[in-house]
Design a protein around this nucleic acid. Structure first.
Length: 569
RNA sequence: CGGUGAUUAGCGCAGCUUGGUAGCGCACUUGGUUUGGGUCCAAGGGGUCGCAAGUUCGAAUCUUGCAUCACCGACCA
């Protein structure tokens, strides 16, 4: 490719809207352009990278035995009604009508379509197991698109689905997919970790997310500093404190705390550590026989954060997790948020493991502008139920039993999941088993955010000059950069000949044939992250040499023109 | 969904307080100059100032409404 025929589109200045480095560089290097919130056009350079990522993913999925298919992006609403997700999926699901006013959705994922397909196509256990995948555009109407293609509304995803008669077969395929994912991210040259993930409301036994480690990531990952343990913070268990609860030493005392509302206020007002305060959160419970939804109280140590995923798993708590309104709080606790405590509440009270271990603590008095000090469990307030409600924090013992928790940020680029039979059941996806009986299938699903990988790779591989692509996904393998080609016939001839030779050999080379000064060319190629520059100038032509510059190492060297081809073997 | 801010040329911004012919830098075009790290000089092209209504002789500027975009928050007990 010649730059004179190519849409280079590099920018000197960073567009103001770009927050994270990958977004800035994707705009500056001319990879993408924004169309509307969360919607991006892929320019030639960006598309080259995207296609390379796509091909690696495709090759490894095929190697793992999956068949590629392509499903429609627009899906009829009745499929979603059949699975129950028309009501459950929420506002991220973009719904639309056709000219006959028939409802459709833009596919955010394809469990419904694929399960329907397999239900129609398969009739015998002999056809199992079966893995299918597609690489296709998805649409999710995100509440807050951000970070460029990292969290766009429209994005490219590889989604694979496997179908099995039995759980052990699913587990085998799950492991094959796990290994395939490791190969994919290894080949992409990314620093990644598989981490335990929550299985969500769907249930199932196992789920792993694959995270690229980067400070700009939106997920917190809990690692052990002494083992391979890694889990999404949503999933990481906070173990019960090993120490016994200390005996009470203080008397229960009600103190006036005018205008003291937050935990920090309380700590400051009473001059106590936030760790000796408990906070009581009121959330909506599940509907009872009378058709009412009572509140549920959650008690946590002041310095801890509620883990919403763990909380949603509690049978008493409604899904999705909903915090009580001010009116509900007043009706239940006789006070405003800010003065709630567990003592005397006549609703379910669920106490976090760490909060349950406190003694002589502080809590709200269920009376505005009042708190209790010297509170002790059992003496002042019965412990009815203890659960793991909080996010782990650094320094907690690792749930694997070895070492302490360390927390890092990650970008989720893959997620594999043992789905079970939720969709197969809903869509009547069954085959005849060996005994001639209809048997509902069990499924696995396996996703990779292809477009997100491009951004994640940049987050991990850049410097002040621009992108430093891992070789496997660089838009070009090399660029030919002639010095003053317009003035030197020799330089021009050499560059043209080399370009011809490399192109013929199928090397992806960008020939910078613009009439630009060297500095402009160098800056553009460094911004775009071309791994290897072939610099052709008068000064080395007498010796029949070109200069090489490596983008990753910055090393320069000379090589005979005749030997250039050998670089690409 | 809540809060904050923004919207003026392809990009980055000024002008608005105090209403009176729409500007700067980058990019682009032409000519010259320079040529191994974003040269320099000159001359140009390009904007319904987000949209709509209002005030006014006159609105980018003042008023109101709307839209879009961005950031923050959605842990309050």
């Amino acid at each position: 490719m010649r730059t004179s025929q190519y849409l280079l589109s590099t920018l000197k200045e960073t567009p103001a809207s770009a927050e994270v480095i990958s977004h800035q560089l994707m705009l500056r290097a001319g990879l993408v352009r924004n169309l509307a919130s969360g919607l991006y056009t892929w320019l030639p350079t960006g598309l080259r990278v995207l296609k390379k990522v796509e091909n690696i993913v495709r090759e490894e999925m095929q190697r793992a035995g999956a068949n590629e298919i392509l499903m429609p992006m627009v899906q009829p609403a009745d499929l979603w009604e059949e699975s129950g997700r028309w009501d459950d999926y929420g506002p991220e699901l973009l719904r639309l009508n056709d000219r006959h006013k028939r409802p459709f959705v833009l596919g955010p994922t394809h469990e419904e379509v694929i399960t329907k397909l397999v239900a129609n196509e398969l009739s015998s256990y002999k056809q199992l197991p079966l893995s299918l995948f597609q690489i296709q555009t998805k649409f999710r109407d995100e509440i807050r698109p951000r970070f460029g293609v990292m969290r766009g509304r429209e994005f490219l995803m590889k989604d694979a689905y496997s179908f099995h008669l039995e759980q052990d077969c699913l587990e085998k395929t799950y492991q094959i997919m796990f290994d395939a994912y490791c190969r994919i991210f290894d080949r992409l040259g990314l620093d990644y970790r598989p981490v335990l993930a929550d299985t969500g409301s769907i249930g199932g036994d196992a789920s792993h997310e694959f995270h690229v480690l980067a400070d700009s990531g939106e997920d917190d990952i809990a690692f052990s500093n002494a083992s391979d343990f890694a889990a999404n913070i949503e999933k990481a268990e906070a173990l019960a404190p090993s120490a016994e609860r200390a005996e009470p030493t203080q008397a229960l005392t009600k103190v006036a705390t005018p205008n003291v509302k937050t935990i920090d206020d309380v700590a400051r007002f009473l001059s106590v550590d936030v760790k000796t305060i408990v906070k009581t959160l009121l959330v909506c419970g599940v509907e009872n026989e009378q058709g009412q939804t009572p509140l549920v109280a959650l008690v946590l140590r002041g310095d801890h954060q509620l883990n919403e995923i763990k909380t949603e798993h509690l049978p008493q708590v409604s899904t999705p997790l909903t915090f009580a309104s001010d009116e509900q709080i007043l009706a239940t606790a006789n006070c405003n948020a800010g003065s709630i405590g567990p003592i005397g509440l006549n609703i379910d009270v669920i106490i976090d493991r760490s909060a349950a271990q406190l003694s002589d603590f502080v809590c709200g008095a269920n009376e505005n502008d009042a708190h209790y000090t010297g509170v002790n469990w059992q003496r002042d307030c019965a412990i009815t139920e203890i659960a793991d409600l909080r996010n782990v924090v650094e320094g907690d013992p690792s749930p694997c039993g070895q070492g302490e928790i360390v927390i890092k940020r990650g970008i989720e680029v893959g997620h594999i999941f043992q789905l079970g039979s939720k969709y197969a059941q809903a869509m009547s996806c069954a085959v005849l088993n060996e005994g001639g009986k209809n048997q509902t299938l069990t499924m696995g699903c396996y996703g990779i955010g292809v477009s997100r990988i491009v951004a994640a790779a940049i987050e991990q591989n850049h410097d002040k000059y621009g992108i430093k692509w891992p070789e496997a996904i660089a838009p070009f393998q090399a660029a030919i950069v002639p010095m003053n080609m317009a003035k030197s016939a020799r330089v021009k001839e050499t560059a043209e000949a080399l370009y011809e030779q490399l192109s013929q050999a199928g090397i992806e080379v960008l020939f910078d044939d613009r009439k630009e000064r060297p500095g402009v060319m160098f800056a553009d190629h460094e911004l775009m992250g071309t791994p290897l520059l072939l610099i052709i100038g008068e000064r080395n032509l007498d010796a029949q040499q070109v200069e090489l510059k490596n983008r990753i190492t910055g090393e320069k060297s000379l090589i005979a023109i005749a030997d250039v081809m050998s670089l690409f073997n």
